[in-house]
């Protein structure tokens, strides 16, 4: 990937991480860990891959994303705002009464959301149906589905996994579908390995008939390459196992099951933002002075604390 493109994606993902922390801190509840693990994948999809028009969210030829792990929708809201689906200022209405930014995605309240998810295990089936419907109509659209790792403990995922490589064959194979597993290794109660180990993951999906790719889900070059490869694959949908770090870029959240579903308190949120921006504690006052946008976000959070 050209250096400029890489730097652009890194910068967008950094901004989105800040927004994720900002909106969750305002909301006072939600899921930071998985939002931070999936954000590099969503950033790549929205800013280096998918075709869409934020002014026409119902454009029939758009590419679609089904975020099956619906609890990580703050990550999706952050990229959607960045992409122009709605103003960034609205992000802090997350989970508030009357906001279209529901705690888990609502397709009707927020145009651009493709499916209601949040009851885990259902997104892949819907993605299959979408991919099939688009193929039947000869549309060029691609469908992306992001699964959580713990989510694949749900039986419906395996019904869909078994069907996907066969559905639509031979005339309308679902090679317009690409599934990405956000393999961060942690679910609500504990580490996935401790609750119900998924291994061997690759062998399972392979046995179900999927072409497989395995990547670092925080490496934009690897993500992009895998998406290229998926797009070039004919006859079958592709499954990408993306190894990720839950809570990525915030030291005290990384790899800690505690941060699956707990919002940061204002001071924690501010510290998280500083870490995301890679600013040392000593340099923080100067950084805030030099960066008005960040300063405004931080001041908002400080004000929250006084409430």
């Amino acid at each position: 990937m050209p250096t400029a493109d890489l730097a652009r994606l890194q910068s967008i993902a950094r901004d989105c991480r800040v927004q994720i922390i900002r909106m969750l801190t305002h909301a006072g509840s939600g899921h930071p860990g998985g939002s931070l693990s999936v954000i590099d994948i969503l950033t790549t999809l929205f800013f280096a891959r998918m075709r869409y028009d934020p002014k026409r969210p119902d454009w029939p030829d758009r590419d679609r994303l089904v975020l099956s792990k619906g609890h990580c929708v703050p990550a999706l809201y952050s990229v959607m705002a960045k992409a122009g689906f709605f103003p960034e200022g609205r992000l802090i209405t997350l989970r508030k009464l009357g906001s279209p930014l529901q705690g888990h995605p609502d397709r009707v309240m927020l145009p651009g959301i493709e499916a209601a998810t949040g009851s885990l295990g259902q997104g892949l089936s819907m993605a299959l149906g979408m991919a099939l419907g688009l193929r039947l109509d000869g549309r060029p659209s691609r469908v992306y589905c992001v699964l959580g790792d713990g989510e694949t403990q749900e039986g419906q995922v395996w019904e869909a996994a078994m069907a996907a490589p066969k559905l639509g064959q031979p005339d309308h194979p679902l090679d317009n579908l690409c599934v990405i597993l956000d393999y961060n290794g942690i679910q609500l109660d504990d580490f996935v390995k401790k609750v119900l180990d998924l291994e061997p993951v690759l062998e399972k999906w392979k046995a179900f008939g999927w072409p497989l790719l395995e990547i670092d889900g925080h490496d934009f070059t690897q993500i992009t390459k895998a998406l290229d490869q998926a797009e070039a694959t004919r006859g079958r949908p592709t499954f990408i196992v993306a190894h990720t770090v839950k809570g990525k870029s915030v030291s005290f959240m990384e790899n800690d099951p505690e941060w699956h579903g707990k919002a940061p308190k204002p001071q924690e949120g501010i510290r998280a933002i500083r870490e995301i921006l890679s600013v040392a504690e000593g340099d923080w006052p100067a950084y805030r002075q030099a960066h008005a946008e960040t300063a405004a976000i931080v001041e908002e959070l400080e004000a929250l604390e006084k409430k």
């Binding site: 499916a115 993605a127 299959l128 559905l167």
Partner: peptide
């Protein structure tokens, strides 16, 4: 379950 979900996707 998968049948219903695929139906939803087709409808969408």
């Amino acid at each position: 379950s998968n049948m219903i979900g695929i139906g939803a996707g087709l409808a969408l």
